[in-house]
């Protein structure tokens, strides 16, 4: 008999084992929800699936009585726009500062301590400052994402740029390259797939900062909606929204991974 550590599940068993916890979670929820609704048909804590279905129908496919908008889609558009602007600007700054500090020792000496210091400031703690400085508009929410993830992106990409083998930097010089050309033809193209990895890692935090900012000051957005309906204990809305956010996060991550494999085959081939 093989030791447990040496036994591997087959492909079917792997899938089955992976799905099992999800199925169990679902069954537990159904049982608990049924039990509570049996005791009190007006219970709001664990709504039935039909109640959630109604809520989805109401939020996604019927215009709001107040504003005439389809709320789920309006919220999604608002949140994704903020996320895209915030993450996009952060990625651009991470790319520029990561390459400059990772490649040029003088820039590293001048900027690294500042970036390290900034990265230690808890972003949520300066959210009030952002609201004071930038008001309650879009800028403050986008700024929170930027402040939250840019230091991480810069530090990660600086490290990745420094990991480019010295042999390749020397090789570029023996091929006649100047500093600018080394950045343009060696460092930048090699950093791009690593930027995508770093962005994928930082997306979790980006969502966190987005929802936090929306919860405090917004008039639309996925985070705003969840915190709004919390007042009415509307779990039938909150749970589908959370599931929808999770699905969006998964889809973005999946698309970035796919794009990276398609665009940078050399990176994934050698790793």
């Amino acid at each position: 008999m093989k030791k447990l550590i040496n036994r591997h599940p087959g492909p079917v068993a792997t899938w089955a084992l992976g799905l099992l916890p999800f199925a169990l979670l679902l069954v537990v929820y159904l049982l608990a929800s049924d039990a509570r609704l049996e005791a009190n048909p007006n219970d709001k804590l664990l709504p039935s699936f039909s109640a959630m279905g109604d809520a989805i129908q109401r939020m996604a496919f019927e215009p709001s009585k107040r504003s005439g908008e389809y709320l789920l889609w309006a919220d999604t558009l608002a949140s994704l726009t903020r996320l895209a602007i915030g993450v996009g600007i952060s990625a651009l700054m991470g790319l520029i500062f990561g390459i400059v500090t990772g490649t040029l020792p003088y820039a590293r000496a001048g900027l690294s301590p500042l970036i390290t210091g900034l990265s230690l400031v808890p972003p949520m703690a300066i959210l009030p400052i952002l609201f004071i400085l930038f008001g309650l508009g879009e800028l403050a929410k986008v700024m929170l994402i930027i402040i939250g993830i840019t230091p991480f992106l810069i530090r990660d990409l600086q490290q990745r740029a420094r990991e480019i083998p010295a042999e390749q930097v020397i090789k570029m010089q023996t091929l006649g390259a100047n500093t600018w050309q080394i950045i343009l033809r060696l460092v930048w193209p090699q950093i791009m797939p690593r930027l995508i990895s770093a962005v994928r890692l930082s997306l979790g935090s980006a969502w966190l900062f987005l929802i936090a900012a929306e919860a405090i000051a917004a008039t639309e957005g996925l985070g705003y909606r969840i915190f709004l309906v919390r007042r009415y204990l509307s779990m039938d809305v909150i749970l589908p929204y959370v599931l929808w956010i999770t699905l969006l996060a998964f889809a973005i991550d999946f698309l970035l991974a796919r794009y990276s494999r398609w665009r940078y085959p050399w990176f994934h081939g050698s790793h």
Partner: peptide
Amino acid sequence: QPDETRGIVFQRYSVLPH
């Protein structure tokens, strides 16, 4: 500093992977 007067081939990492 290295320049184009001297060519180099290392044991590893000599070519650009991208």
